[in-house]
Nucleic acid binder design. Structure first.
Lengths: 198, 198
DNA sequence: CGTTGTTTATGACGGCGGTCATAGTAGTTC
DNA sequence: GAACTACTATGACCGCCGTCATAAACAACG
């Protein structure tokens, strides 16, 4: 997880991964390309080669990666739940963040959120990448919910609610350097979510 | 609201106001000081004079202003409701955003969110300003809820939930260029909120 | 060995942005 | 009117950053 060794993944993958990490922490604008290369232990010359589309391409791929990662993560949470309930899933999603924050501090937020804030008005492709990332993520959540017996029409809406509440709570938690907001939304939203299983 | 005329407010106020607007749209890092001065129709030389603390000071004041603004706005929403209910208040808070987005487009997000994303790890004072802004806002919401009969212990938690869900929905809505996420959280959260009045 | 295609190295360019230095203007007070 | 304060005007500095140009290593393969 840390400092991605130079062997297991190719330089290209490592750079996308590092970009996501740095964006998550400092935002898109404050993240430099040279910095990404250094962080990924990748040669600077590879930037041009793998990302001829420049920074925008790198950012877009990082956002896309983050979206797919979030989706897979939801799938794994679901698989790990002994008796799957909406509140249980949401609890795990939230716990991922409280765990990180208590373990290593409040340095990072969600890269998709960062890209949206920094690029939504500047770069249409990046905004679309963010939109797609949310769609991936929300798709996984909605599928999980329907699998638990939540009616199809409702599942999408609840997925949006869960992701919105989580994203907002991440923001507040980072600002306050306190996981309070995260645990609060998990606790308050739990019953509502479980009430949707028929 | 637009292009702040040069008379009603002083140059200093206008710059803080403009900073908030630009940060809201492009993020903190992408907002230049010279740009703020131009947008505020303020002399460039006044930047040093009014904000000797540099960009950080300007950003912090913009964030503080945004927090107080959000708080006052909640108070006004509350006052305007004929029969105050939590869902009614939340509906108004959400509607402020759907109205803006449908009227003038998805150019802007929440300046406090932008400051958090861009500066939380870089600048402790700015992070604290963001935290204070959330506290102002959330304080107003919590007071409004208690006034509607929500038990004190619960009001704070629900205020956090409301603000988190709203912030997250703003993000998603901006990425998707669609108010869907906003209307969804308002609809889904309404009953839960009203159920808290004893 | 030669050739071809992939990857890396490096330096330069041009632009922008925050900050500083310095000086100028305007308004007020003694 | 002189002194003093509040404000404005500019230009310069310096650093960072994304990008480009160019060339070198290196691998695979005929």
């Amino acid at each position: 997880m840390a400092a991605a060794e130079a062997s297991r993944y190719g330089a290209r993958e490592r750079m996308v991964f590092s970009a996501a990490q740095l964006i998550r922490r400092d935002g898109v604008a404050a993240t430099g390309m040279r910095e990404v290369a250094v962080h990924a232990h990748a040669p600077r010359g590879s930037l041009q080669h793998y990302f001829p589309g420049g920074k925008e391409q790198l950012v877009n791929e990082a956002v896309g990666w983050a979206g797919r990662y979030a989706g897979k993560r939801v799938d794994r949470f679901l698989a790990a739940l002994s008796e799957p309930t909406p509140s249980g899933l949401f609890g795990e999603m939230v716990r991922q963040w409280t765990d990180e924050y208590t373990a290593v501090g409040f340095a990072g937020g969600c890269p998709v959120a960062a890209a949206t804030v920094d690029c939504a008005e500047t770069s249409a492709p990046t905004r679309e990448a963010a939109s797609a990332a949310f769609a991936d993520w929300s798709g996984s959540v909605a599928r999980a919910l329907t699998g638990m017996g939540v009616p199809q029409e409702r599942a999408g809406a609840l997925a949006t609610l869960m992701i919105s509440a989580l994203e907002g709570a991440i923001l507040v938690a980072r600002a306050e350097r306190d996981v309070r907001a995260l645990t609060t939304v998990a606790r308050e939203l739990g019953p509502l979510l479980d009430a949707a299983v028929r």
